[in-house]
Write a protein that binds this DNA or RNA. Structure first.
Lengths: 206, 206
DNA sequence: GTTAGCATGTAAGGAGTTACATGATTTT
DNA sequence: AAAATCATGTAACTCCTTACATGCTAAC
């Protein structure tokens, strides 16, 4: 029930897990954490908060004096915090390793909260994202060599730049994966060090 | 009237300008040209075609036998072509240099059809995009140095990677701008070679 | 003869934006 | 006292996706 895929919802829950916040502040942190990935407007944030409230995932944190607002109570600010249900739901979302976690936005937000994700899931998501991008590179090269002659130089340059961007991210991911592996040596030290290249996936309930 | 901003509309008009096509083929070319930028489903393509038809920007190209379908008429395919109005509208869209042409998607699609855009507009769009990205880098560095201490290493790495991606695109744009300038030496050889860093813009009617 | 690919569509709805409306509080 | 910033919200709308429905043709 309430199968929201929304990136915003995840980001809000992720931020609230760190400390209770009110809407206005939340939006600023959102921009800070997500950087150039995405920007949300109040027009989507406030309705989202209401919806999370109705769903019982967050609650008003009455009488809260968070350290960030050192000044005297400025105005009727509504501070929200995660409920037990909210924490649980967040963990479920962060544990997803299916399509939602590979997609550009979904991956970005999950990565931003990797510190609260367990090591095994981190590795799965990183590898899922990488193989997704590798597929993209493949299909790309294919169509490039197939239609190379018919494209003008601008279109070609665009493709080239896009391809290099993806390849760059793949290298970045590979470094991160190596780091993760170094940190947690080997979850399953099976004799064959081959990573299964086909059929990844788990519980992708969408 | 009919102020559609849609990326899809622009892409369709841009492709049809090159040659008449039917929906199914159109979608394949869309994926080929836009590459990893974006993918559209039939569920958005066909309604878009209908709408363009109603608006009189495209028309059915009855009795057309395009060279790409060498085989005998496979089935009732509806081939569309640009009308005079459509060509005009497309040129207007491609001539925009305001926000619509800076945004990620808007820029990408316009760039893909740069071959049909006049040199002066190309330069304006490239410069607009670049200064947009430079602003992004600025705000970015600012918030990074301000909140550096409070972010965990994952969030930091994400920011770092995002920042480098943007910087990379800026370098790419700079090369393209140089190329353009070399091709068309100087539209206005004024004594001061300074590019106006403030208040660019023109007719951004949205 | 059944799967795979070509080809066109529609209905419902999700996710978020823009523009607007309101008011308190701090700064200039 | 005006302007900027903090703070919360709503209504209408845009653009696109998913899932479905249909049928024809080619290959296996």
């Amino acid at each position: 029930m309430s199968k929201r895929t929304g990136v915003l919802e995840l980001a809000v829950l992720g931020l609230l897990q760190e400390s209770p916040l009110h809407g206005y502040e939340l939006r600023k942190r959102l921009s800070a954490v997500l950087g150039s990935l995405r920007a949300f407007s109040y027009g989507s944030l406030y309705p989202c908060l209401k919806q999370l409230l109705r769903a019982g995932l967050i609650a008003e944190d009455a009488g809260n004096l968070d350290p960030t607002s050192a000044g005297p109570g400025k105005r009727s600010r509504i501070v929200y915090k995660l409920t037990a249900d909210g924490k649980e739901h967040l963990q479920e979302l962060l544990a997803e390793t299916g399509p939602a976690a590979w997609e550009d936005d979904g991956f970005g937000v999950r990565f931003a909260f990797f510190a609260r994700t367990d090591a095994a899931t981190r590795l799965r998501i990183l590898e899922g994202r990488r193989s997704r991008l590798e597929e993209r590179v493949e299909g790309f090269r294919g169509s490039l060599t197939r239609t190379r002659e018919r494209l003008d130089s601008y279109t070609l340059q665009l493709q080239q730049h896009g391809l290099e961007s993806v390849e760059r991210e793949v290298r970045w991911l590979s470094e991160l994966i190596d780091d993760e592996r170094r940190r947690e040596p080997a979850p399953v030290p099976s004799p064959q060090p081959q990573t299964s290249t086909t059929s990844n996936d788990t519980g992708d309930n969408r």
